[in-house]
């Protein structure tokens, strides 16, 4: 069982990132669930979603022992690093989470300047894909090739053809 939380501000594409990730898991033949936060959220507040992968049937879509957290802002670090299990990996946007920001010492933190990379690639809304690329490179849940395929499939189905999305993903994978 792999448990992943994607979190950030509303509008940063965290729900979409989770869906792409779940699509990749499905295409690998795994059982997957995706679950959004849908409470009464404050504008500019945090949005998040939960993704689970397993070879067995998944009982609950809710998370308990989280393996990976993708935190796009500091409120997400505050809200969700507590649920990570020891040895878990937390990905943060190093542009908004300062190096001296208090984080747990029993987890691995991967710092990626996702917004900066996305802006440089001319695709400012692609920061979430940079993060996803970094996730593919730093964990063994899927390879970079597998996530590239999932992203292509996901956006093609939505009728979106933006080559810069793949570029963001690949730049993230180099981090």
């Amino acid at each position: 069982m792999i448990e992943i939380r994607f979190a950030g501000f509303g509008g940063q594409g965290v729900l979409t990132t989770g869906m792409v990730c779940a699509t990749a898991g499905m295409d690998l033949g795994k059982n997957v669930t995706w679950y959004p936060s849908y409470g009464s959220q404050m504008r500019g507040g945090t949005a998040n979603c939960s993704v689970k992968f397993d070879d067995k049937a998944i009982a609950s879509p809710f998370l308990k022992n989280v393996d990976i957290l993708c935190a796009m802002n500091t409120p997400s670090v505050d809200s969700f690093q507590g649920e990570l299990k020891p040895g878990a990996v937390m990905f943060v946007d190093s542009g908004v989470v300062p190096e001296d920001y208090p984080v747990r010492d029993d987890i691995k933190v991967v710092r990626v300047p996702v917004n900066e990379i996305a802006h440089k690639a001319g695709n400012p809304r692609g920061a979430n894909l940079v993060m996803l690329g970094a996730m593919a490179a730093h964990t063994d849940i899927f390879t970079v090739d597998e996530i590239v395929k999932a992203v292509e499939k996901f956006f093609k189905k939505k009728g979106i053809d933006n080559p810069k999305n793949l570029e963001c993903l690949k730049l993230g994978a180099e981090c």
């Binding site: 869906m19 779940a22 679950y35 959004p36 879509p61």
Partner: peptide, 9 residues
């Protein structure tokens, strides 16, 4: 809501 909000293959 668990099944309604959840995505699965």
């Amino acid at each position: 809501a668990g099944i309604g909000q959840m995505m699965e293959p």
